[in-house]
Design a protein around this nucleic acid. Structure first.
Lengths: 191, 191
DNA sequence: CCAAACTGATTGCGTTTTGCAAGCAGTTGA
DNA sequence: TCAACTGCTTGCAAAACGCAATCAGTTTGG
């Protein structure tokens, strides 16, 4: 019988799985960047993850039940990585991490807009986003006509990018409405 | 000019500070265990942190603005470590980590009771707890008569311990009221 | 039909971090 | 005076990390 865990504390057990500098980066990219293949994760990585580290983390996350790996029917060599319910449940944690980082660390504007929207949307937005992830990764059916949270986040990100670029070229990207706002469905900082 | 950060993403920047297996354990013990001295952190550590790792983490956390270190006036060699506002702001993150661990990992009953209370208390309880931490670590004044959140969490922990011990000796620790409940101030799973 | 590009990785190798045990100089309290 | 306590440091082996190059099989474009 081997010593499996340092302690039974929930925070410690969570750290034993997620307590390194790459695991949550990989999950973030799959979750918010919709990267489902090895090369997508490797080449679009903002933080330039090394391929051996990526391979190791994907293996570990599959082992530990946060990801599943399946063959891509369109390509005999391709693997598709999907989030499990366990990983989808990390949405509130990632939202809190983003909020804390935004408040205390030197974040860049374009990369923090999604964190800001997620923070302001509160639990209601997180729940909608998690339902969307369940549809995308677990095959769960979604009510038709459901607006995509991820699309909203991505649009806001691109709008900031365009605006920043526009400052030095042409400021022509304003649509009139503030980026990312979708009516009044989600409260600002709901408690 | 050196490369300081892998990217400006809030989640990444947070991981650059907290993304290891010990930093949040140290903060947890100072925050919930009220350990303020090196030896307290070393010897009461559930996870048996090594002294060189502890020394390194304390130094790093002070460097990065999460802790302060000051001399203890009662002992020329003693150092007192205190949380900064930056660290106190981690309460919601730690609460989410605890909630996730409780849901998905093999936590022990006595070590997860505090996480459960913190989760059920929601933002309102977190705010009260943070105010209490500001009083303890930053010298902020608290309205007189304020009940201690930490005391409630600790009592619940000890009650579970006593009940577990009592099962094999004498089951005499029940007070009638469920452990940790303090009237109806904090909602269950408020959204 | 063949070469180029793409697929998910693996290998080699040097550096950094971790983990464990022991030790240390100064301080305190009995 | 002396044992216990204070915040660490040191030495050393093992593991993890990070980088660059590479690999074999698959698909695609000409």
């Amino acid at each position: 019988m081997e010593e499996l865990h340092r302690s039974g504390c929930p925070i410690n057990l969570t750290l034993e799985i997620l307590g390194d500098r790459w695991s949550l980066i990989v999950i973030r990219d799959i979750m918010f960047g919709n990267r489902r293949h090895f090369r997508e994760l490797l080449q679009n990585s903002q933080e330039r993850i090394a391929s051996n580290i990526l391979a190791d983390r994907l293996r570990r996350l599959v082992d530990r039940g946060l990801l599943t790996r399946e063959d891509d029917p369109t390509h005999k060599q391709k693997a598709i990585y999907s989030l499990t319910e366990m990983a989808i449940d990390l949405v509130p944690l990632l939202a809190q991490m983003g909020a804390w980082g935004r408040k205390h660390l030197p974040v860049s504007e374009e990369l923090s807009i999604r964190a800001e929207l997620l923070e302001n949307g509160g639990q209601a937005l997180w729940n909608d986003f998690m339902e969307e992830l369940r549809a995308k990764h677990l095959g769960k059916q979604l009510p038709p006509g459901t607006p995509s949270v991820l699309a909203g986040l991505t649009k806001a990100y691109l709008d900031v990018l365009a605006k920043k670029a526009g400052c030095s070229v042409l400021a022509e990207n304003d649509t009139g409405a503030p980026a990312g706002h979708q009516g009044q469905k989600y409260g600002e900082n709901a408690v």
